[in-house]
Simulated assay, not measured.
Amino acid sequence: MSVTIHIAGLPDERIVFAPSPLAELGTALHTLAEPGHHPGVRGWATAVNAGLPQDLADRLSEADFLWRTTFSDIMMGFAGVRDSSGRPGATLAEDLDLLDKLEDEDFVSAALEFTCSALYGADALTSPLTDPVLRDRAVELASARGPQQRQFTEWLLADPPAVRAWVRRLFEDCEQAFFADTWNRVRQQLAADARQKTELLRRRGLAATLEAVSPALSTDEHRTVIDADKLSSARTTAVDPEVGPGVTFVPSVHQWPHLLVLHRHGWRPVVHYPIAAPEMQAPLSVEQFKLRMEALAHPMRMQLCRNLARAPYTTGELADHYSLSSPEVSRHLAVLKRAGLITARRRGRYVQYQLDLKVVGRLGSDFLETVLR
């Protein structure tokens, strides 16, 4: 599965790398709401949450569905502005000015993304602002998420300008409370990464640049598409003449481990990617993750993992221990090895197998604790 961006004929100068203060604020708010997703900055999140004024904390709680479980496209409103360079603002105020340029229909559609509308990425010919059926459906979907979401949706549909002003004031107050300091700390790093990727694109081409951005990104031999390896399938285009050609890559310090692809119809596509820290390992492909989950789903392979987590074993030793035939054990070990979960080393005429604890540790501490218990 992947999200595909069509780029056939797109010139390099329309592939933009640039930081976005509003997008970074969005990832910062997500981190504050879900610090468990971002262990590397948990200390920062704890300190910021502890220092938030109570009024601001309450207002953030009222709207956290815009960034907690989804990352609302209003955080990258620059992508929906027609006839622009496709570049975000240099400051939060400039990014918010670009967001203000969106028509009410576009803003409402983006703000309602948390309802998981099946129309995301499709050509919506009508709007819940004008279509009573779509309006009722939007309220129904929001109600399923909770009373807070329903109240927000009803207010948004009744008075979009008031909600837009409230959201802007909320983000401005975030800047005053904590984000100005955060942005000053990270903006040079983000700008440097954007310059480095732009230069890499000029010198080595798109394929090498995408690989440097994330192993989850790739292009085909003829450079007609960009594919993002995701647990979802979608298509969009960076060469829509009505929107203007271009795709924007936005680096983020707070984004890891998320890689987001904005693919809303009528907006320029955006790839929002984490800057890789030296200690970060490359993300798994969806297929490789699937292989690992399937390998561990078999009860006998789980039993084998229990032994292999403690010490290296040969096929014969494992066969004797579990009263199995050597070929049967070999088949189980082959599945584990193909999934990258075990290592093999030769000792004379014997081959010993052992669980790779670093690999399984990335799958989760619960599994590791279970096999080591």
Rank of each mutant, 00 (worst) to 15 (best):
A216L: 04
E199V: 10
L129T: 06
Y313G: 04
S85F: 08
L129F: 05
R362V: 05
R264A: 15
D97W: 02
A79E: 00
R59D: 15
L125R: 10
A295I: 02
F114H: 05
A18G: 10
A282E: 05
Q188L: 09
V108T: 14
M300D: 12
D104E: 13
R195G: 15
G121R: 03
L99F: 11
A93H: 02
V351K: 14
S143G: 04
D181W: 12
R235N: 11
W256N: 13
T46G: 12
A297R: 11
L157R: 06
Q281C: 03
Y350S: 11
A165N: 07
H272Q: 07
G77W: 10
A18Q: 06
V371G: 15
P299I: 07
H30W: 12
M76F: 00
L98V: 11
R264W: 11
A297F: 05
Q354V: 12
Q148D: 13
V133T: 09
Q303F: 14
L129E: 00
L210P: 00
R82S: 07
F367D: 01
G348F: 05
E62I: 00
R42S: 10
G86W: 05
L304P: 11
L201M: 07
L210V: 00
D95F: 06
R349K: 09
L357W: 05
I74E: 12
F17V: 09
L333F: 11
M76A: 02
T315D: 09
R345T: 09
R42G: 05
W256G: 08
R268A: 15
G266D: 08
S20G: 03
R59I: 09
V239E: 07
H258K: 12
P161I: 08
A208D: 05
W166P: 00
T237K: 06
V139K: 04
D227W: 06
W166G: 02
T209C: 03
A228L: 10
W166V: 02
D73W: 01
D220Q: 08
T237F: 08
S232T: 12
P161F: 08
H30N: 14
G121S: 02
Q288E: 01
T31Y: 14
M75V: 08
D106R: 14
P257M: 12
Q149N: 09
Y273V: 01
L96I: 12
L134A: 03
A277R: 10
S365T: 11
E175D: 15
F17H: 11
V108P: 15
S325T: 15
R338W: 00
H38E: 10
E34W: 13
H263P: 04
T31E: 14
V139Y: 02
S325C: 04
P53S: 03
Q281N: 01
I15L: 05
L141W: 01
D159Y: 05
D227Y: 02
A234H: 08
E221D: 14
G361E: 08
R347A: 07
R301L: 09
T70L: 00
T198P: 09
S365N: 06
V359Q: 02
A165R: 10
L157N: 10
A339T: 07
E24M: 14
